[in-house]
Deep mutational scan, measured.
Amino acid sequence: MAAGGDHGSPDSYRSPLASRYASPEMCFVFSDRYKFRTWRQLWLWLAEAEQTLGLPITDEQIQEMKSNLENIDFKMAAEEEKRLRHDVMAHVHTFGHCCPKAAGIIHLGATSCYVGDNTDLIILRNALDLLLPKLARVISRLADFAKERASLPTLGFTHFQPAQLTTVGKRCCLWIQDLCMDLQNLKRVRDDLRFRGVKGTTGTQASFLQLFEGDDHKVEQLDKMVTEKAGFKRAFIITGQTYTRKVDIEVLSVLASLGASVHKICTDIRLLANLKEMEEPFEKQQIGSSAMPYKRNPMRSERCCSLARHLMTLVMDPLQTASVQWFERTLDDSANRRICLAEAFLTADTILNTLQNISEGLVVYPKVIERRIRQELPFMATENIIMAMVKAGGSRQDCHEKIRVLSQQAASVVKQEGGDNDLIERIQVDAYFSPIHSQLDHLLDPSSFTGRASQQVQRFLEEEVYPLLKPYESVMKVKAELCL
């Protein structure tokens, strides 16, 4: 049975990233139509530049190519590739079939990587351009969430054990800070992308030097003109047959890092959902379990974690691919890159769409948070109580021993009897502590235990987050809708 299948058929496997999760716009960027249309555009740009620099290419040939950029006979191309065992030459023939007058000058002087690699770089750039505003929107939604809850005390956790208090907004800023680093890295790697350009079979530009009869300047002009037509500021000066596969490492490393950030955020949300302090959106008709109707599973956060793990592992592909590119190139890269580049971007696209949807509907339960604080705060307040007693004339050592005994009794009630923490009640009825009984409410005010959390939130948002989001103001209103 021949390899390949009808990918629109229910009898043929289709990647869930495309069929179930990723956005239509990201799927289109990695589609065959987008790819092969870009090949034709690159052939047109090459012909236009070659004509401008004096090669015998007519206006009629150029116009014929322009008129057929979208006229792609995919069936013919597939048949040609089956016959020739070469995808680029299959599309040269297919393009030439609908451009008979231009057929002889299509791909003039070029090698397969002229269309293959340059198209990949265009796709990487455009895919990054799709991700950047999506990530900015996630940051914006979380920034709104953090600002609104900047002063809401909550129990902090280290080692997932109760620690000092923080605020809900401050905790959210930990998430935002990681995503801001990801946004900066995505922008950097996007701006650092260079075009492969017009380089020939081993990167020496020998074929173009021959076409222009040894004119170095025209060869350099050709490279520059096509690079500018493709919208790049610069091209690699040095290439082998391909652009260095280190570029793929750079791009997928940034995406993998984004995956790590999203995994951490969504894990926190899942843990908070278990504590009943916070939940992701839950639709009115949504079913959490087929057997347990009360369940409210954090399905979206779980999906993000599941896909983020996949995204983090994909960076190993370009690392290994770059390491086995012998001399000017081997074909070890080809099949692998067809999979890992598309999957990385479709996965990143999915987790950003999902995280935006989550961040637009996060639900906080202040009463649950308050109750958990009441359970733990008495123990945390013991040092403040000791200091207040010393100020009232008591002995630190005597007070410490009193607190120690009462704390152990209260802990026994919590752990052995399943009761509430009654340390404060014990202190309130103990005559030894009568000098500070009137101060206990103040000493137990949760806001006095959150330090500068709310001020940190305000400063972080104003100095770091809002300036970073400013270039994306025009796209901030787009909502994230999930079908599944």
Score class of each variant (00 low, 15 high):
227 T>I: 06
450 T>C: 13
200 G>T: 15
171 R>G: 10
353 N>R: 11
366 P>T: 00
475 V>K: 08
481 E>C: 14
395 S>M: 11
374 R>P: 14
250 E>Y: 07
287 I>D: 03
54 G>P: 08
474 S>Q: 06
315 V>S: 06
156 G>E: 01
201 T>N: 10
193 L>K: 10
336 N>T: 07
298 P>Y: 02
271 L>A: 15
309 R>H: 09
289 S>R: 09
273 A>S: 07
470 K>N: 07
185 N>E: 05
17 L>D: 12
190 R>G: 06
245 R>Q: 15
80 E>M: 01
67 S>M: 14
388 A>C: 11
450 T>R: 14
118 N>A: 13
103 A>D: 02
367 K>W: 08
282 F>R: 02
116 G>Y: 05
119 T>L: 01
150 A>T: 13
239 T>M: 01
110 A>W: 05
301 S>I: 08
428 Q>A: 00
30 F>I: 09
245 R>C: 04
12 S>D: 01
206 A>D: 02
325 Q>M: 11
259 G>W: 13
107 H>V: 03
321 T>Y: 02
82 K>C: 07
299 M>R: 11
118 N>S: 02
190 R>T: 01
407 S>G: 14
404 R>W: 04
330 T>A: 12
132 L>Y: 08
116 G>R: 04
447 S>G: 09
124 L>C: 03
191 D>Q: 02
48 E>Q: 07
218 K>R: 02
307 L>S: 09
34 Y>A: 11
170 K>M: 15
284 K>R: 06
299 M>K: 14
357 N>K: 04
197 G>V: 01
392 A>T: 03
114 Y>W: 05
470 K>A: 11
252 L>P: 15
373 I>S: 06
77 A>I: 08
434 S>T: 13
418 G>P: 01
47 A>W: 02
51 Q>F: 07
169 G>Q: 04
266 C>P: 15
173 C>S: 13
310 H>A: 13
181 M>F: 10
93 H>W: 05
218 K>M: 06
145 F>M: 00
382 T>M: 15
322 A>T: 01
468 L>M: 15
348 A>G: 09
389 M>C: 00
106 I>V: 08
313 T>I: 08
204 T>N: 03
381 A>C: 03
435 P>V: 06
46 L>Y: 06
72 I>Y: 06
296 R>M: 13
74 F>Q: 00
188 R>F: 10
178 D>T: 07
46 L>I: 02
359 S>R: 15
